[in-house]
Simulated assay, not measured.
Amino acid sequence: MYSLGVPLPPALDGDSAPVHLLPPHKAFNWIHDGSVLVFDVTACGEGSKGPAEVPWRLQEGGLVPYGFATLLPDLPDEAKARVFEALVDDFFGPSEVPDLAIVFETPRPGPKAKASPGQAMAQWILRNKAQPHQVFLVDRDEYAKKYQGLQDAAGTKRLTVPSEIVEDGLYLGPLQTATSSAVLNGLAITHVLSVIDHSVPLPSDARVEHLSLCIEDHPDADLYPVLKKALPWLLAAFAETPGARVLVHCAQGRSRSASVVIAWLMCVKRVLERDEKSGSAALFGAVMGIVKQLRPSIQPNYGFASALENLFHDEGALAPLLMGMEAFLQDPGGRRWQLALG
């Protein structure tokens, strides 16, 4: 069961029907992973039965590429069931219904005792369907505002997008994300770190700092020389560029780039917790779990995993980096890392 949401009031969050509020960036990751059902309960106006009439549509521009349906809570139960089943058949198949669903709504002021349309729809799904087991509510307006740039840049084109590991800060994805103007500009990426075994031609209109480090995705490949260059570069990017947004990529966003992101977050966690007794293996397990919740497809090869489990074996080699990181994390800009790893 996922636990990244903020629980709603107890009356709407019973043990048998968990419903949670979900931050937009976490919804974004799960949606693009293709592992959730997505519904929109936003209507045109009071009493409207039609889909939302807004300047952009959620299913355009890669904002919601999978499993999307408009499902209004005041429809008869039979109509709701037909929409639900059609969505499952079109995108997943009856035997592959995801465990999770996301319901977009635009919150409106109203009596606190009365369930919102999104809450009502979430409860209907949980009462009437064996799956999903959990339903998350997402503020449609916040999501639209945050990712409007992607839709503007891409129009109606489907995009391959990176996972947002630290909100508005650290992104992890495959090669296509680094070579796409729509992605780099739409997400306002400022730095790109390529961890791959060939050159990467960035778009000509991309105004980003770029570091390319050559390594094959093979268990015998030595990860340490890459980390020796990548980790200080990441520290400089975040410490010296206010509002830096860094994309780390390899070919598929699964092994090489994931290993660098995990190593960076292991160092951050080590400094934040000021715990020199915890071994690298324990830190690796904890951080791997955090990143995997946000990008389920990651899987460092066993050679890289072994290197990460022994990352702090030679503490002296990382001492300058950790000292610089400690100063950075004490600044206001370092607070988001505490929230990400909290």
Rank of each mutant, 00 (worst) to 15 (best):
P76R: 10
P111A: 08
A86Y: 02
L58F: 11
M121F: 07
V83S: 05
Q119R: 08
H32N: 15
V88F: 00
V97D: 02
D99M: 00
A120D: 14
V97K: 04
E85D: 11
G118S: 11
D40R: 07
K80A: 05
A101S: 04
W56P: 01
P51M: 03
D33S: 15
P94M: 06
T42Y: 03
P94I: 03
G61F: 01
P23E: 15
R57D: 06
I31T: 06
D89S: 09
L100D: 03
E105S: 08
G47M: 12
P51G: 02
D40V: 07
A115D: 09
H32A: 09
E78Q: 13
Y66S: 00
A120T: 15
F68L: 03
K80R: 15
M121D: 06
G93P: 08
L87Y: 05
V64F: 07
P94Q: 08
V83G: 03
H25R: 12
D33N: 13
A81M: 13
W56E: 08
V64C: 10
P65A: 12
P94Y: 04
F92A: 05
V36N: 03
D99Y: 00
P117H: 11
F92P: 03
G62L: 07
A120R: 15
G118M: 04
D74F: 14
K49W: 11
K112Y: 02
F91H: 07
Q119Y: 06
S48P: 00
G118Q: 07
P117K: 10
S116Q: 09
P111D: 12
A101K: 03
A52L: 04
P73Y: 13
L58R: 12
E53D: 14
P23R: 10
I102S: 01
P51N: 04
G50S: 10
A101M: 11
A86H: 07
L71S: 06
T106R: 11
H32V: 14
V88P: 00
Q59D: 14
D90I: 00
A113V: 15
G67S: 15
G50T: 05
R108M: 15
K49D: 12
P94V: 06
G67W: 07
S35M: 09
D74R: 12
V64I: 14
G67I: 10
D33I: 05
E53P: 03
T106K: 14
V54D: 04
P109V: 02
K26Y: 07
K26L: 15
G45V: 02
F92S: 01
V103I: 13
A113H: 14
W56S: 08
P109Y: 08
K49V: 10
S116P: 05
P24Y: 06
D90Q: 01
F28C: 08
G110F: 05
Q119K: 06
W30P: 00
F39V: 04
